[in-house]
Design a protein around this nucleic acid. Structure first.
Lengths: 340, 340
DNA sequence: CTGAAAGCGCTTACAG
DNA sequence: CTGAAAGCGCTTACAG
């Protein structure tokens, strides 16, 4: 704990606390001489304003909260890194909490952050979350909230997303363009918007290119793990559906699938082409390297904070503003797991 | 922001703020009737004490800071997860900061946390950190600090570590036991204690089993990346040192090496046995699966917080205590990359 | 240009 | 059992 107070500075200098305070904050109505004296002493004493007192007075803590489904995850940890770095630049610190993909926990974490009086909240929803009363509660409390990646369409707040549907469409189209005729999809869970959108993009591409949509070629990955990739890869072979291409919801699952196909002697991309999603660094390390959709996590984190920061300032200046939806670009990274 | 205050509760109930405060905190000198009335009203109004005021009064914020070298990293993100979960159980929130393996940044982050008046700090040092004035500064300020994983021997504070030397010794011994005669080591950077200790464990095992230590078989990975694994794997082959076993500082590098060996047609473990370190989940996914040392990140995080919590309470109760070094068990996970 | 005063919302030692 | 008072350390509107 810091122990030098404004009081002490004022006393040693024989001035009032108010003047000392104003001097440090460069108020225009303090003489240059006084400012210099105060600043110098503050420096030598290594004075730092007590943040607890400042928070109480200013009603803000320069702290924001972030809730993500899971921290041990390449994409989310990248987002968090982006958030933390950007926040630090603006003098904000970040409290991180995890929902563990559970609605109940997510609700609890929201409450913890609210009880802490964080200045704002950044959230990526849990797979489990199907109602949004807890989110709406935050918005009613006038605590700025920005969603990223896993969002809810029906909630009115700013959102930072990628165009999952377009990205999935392009990935599927690429499979079609390179000759695939029967294309499977390993999709994510049923609730999250991005897993829905990726599925819809896949379906739309099939439609547009006159490939019949076959529901039996869609496999649902509830946990989106490496193991699920292995399991469904094997199942797909056993199902004998003559699949020649797969668009997979996320790289981790795709890498599981590749590993299993390698073990089974299924040739990639000769027998089956594969496209993943997220551009995890392992996707360029696996053999064959994985064609995938680049999902800019770090950038998403930065932009999510920037948007929150803007809203924070609007509120401070009592300026009206409307929620904004920011869509980040994605690109298809073509590697060895698809034909040319 | 919450808007119901104690004042309001006291007013509506026609009692004083002090009594209301004491009622909520179950002070023994408040009548049951009053307690009941206050608590009920507090509940219906959804009263939450303003944390800023509480912080200022109690001089603690129930917030701790954590500094790690890099968040986008399987081991560190696991540790953070352990810290956050354990902290939450005890009513603490966690501010996370990254040093980016830079001493300068680490020093800055420490200052940010100190200026924020966090109750305590958990830190894993940057590779760059060779002097410890910033850490000692924290200790002098009486802010409890616990180091984990990447620690400094010369600083007197509690530390949560694994026995890197023993773990490395056992891994190397396993290579020797399974017939390896010329064992290389891909080590980490020169400064970090754990990379030093792993190297020393490797060396000690060679000594104990009468294998001559050959410095030219030690390759230094400064960044500990997948790519370095590939590069040194190739270099090792080109160097024609007839190496038949490698103990590698961390799984990511080992997986890079395996990938390169696979590409070069080097057979694992027939030609070269490999042991990694950390038991990252990819180590059981790669082909061949990687023998590795299990390094319990999540557990380390939990225990680091528990220790900090204990010190926090000792300080609150003005109880003396000495720093404690807690060593977690590791185990060798034998998989396909080594012989039997 | 400077300072006295009020107040942010709580906690707690003290008086009654 | 209850309440008045002091105080945590600041900030800022106001008076001079």
């Amino acid at each position: 704990m810091n122990t030098v107070t404004l009081q002490e500075i004022a006393n040693t200098l024989g001035i009032s606390v108010s003047t000392a305070s104003k001097a440090l904050k460069d108020y225009p109505d303090v003489s240059k001489k006084t400012k210099a004296r105060v600043k110098e002493l503050a420096k030598t004493l290594n004075y730092k304003p007590n943040p607890f007192a400042v928070n109480l007075r200013t009603k803000q803590s320069k702290t924001i909260g972030v809730i993500i489904p899971e921290l041990v995850h390449h994409f989310f940890s990248s987002v968090i890194k982006g958030i933390i770095n950007q926040a630090e630049k603006k003098g904000y610190l970040v409290i991180t909490l995890q929902s563990n993909e559970s609605y109940t926990l997510e609700k609890k974490q929201i409450q913890l952050l609210l009880d802490k009086n964080v200045d704002g909240i950044l959230i990526s929803l849990a797979n489990d979350t199907a109602v949004f009363d807890h989110i709406k509660h935050v918005i009613e409390k006038k605590t700025p909230l920005v969603m990223f990646d896993k969002i809810a369409k029906v909630v009115s707040c700013s959102k930072i997303i990628i165009n999952d549907r377009a990205a999935a469409y392009n990935a599927t189209k690429y499979l079609i363009d390179t000759g695939c005729k029967r294309i499977a999809h390993f999709r994510g869970p049923l609730l999250p918007q991005n897993s829905i959108d990726r599925f819809l993009g896949y379906k739309k591409a099939l439609d547009d290119f006159n490939i019949e949509y076959d529901p039996s070629l869609v496999y649902i990955c509830n946990d989106m793990t490496f193991e699920e990739g292995e399991i469904f890869a094997e199942k797909l072979i056993n199902d004998r559906k003559n699949v020649d291409g797969i668009f997979i919801n996320t790289d981790l699952v795709a890498i599981g699938a590749i590993t299993k196909f390698n073990a089974l002697g299924v040739k990639i991309p000769e027998d089956i082409s594969i496209i993943g999603f997220s551009n995890w660094f392992m996707s360029s390390a696996i053999t064959p390297t994985l064609t995938t959709v680049d999902q800019p996590g770090y950038k998403m984190g930065k932009i999510a904070f920037k948007r929150l920061y803007k809203e924070l300032n609007h509120i401070k200046n009592k300026k009206e503003f409307s929620p904004k939806i920011i869509e980040l670009d994605t690109s298809l990274i073509v590697r060895e797991s698809t034909k040319t």
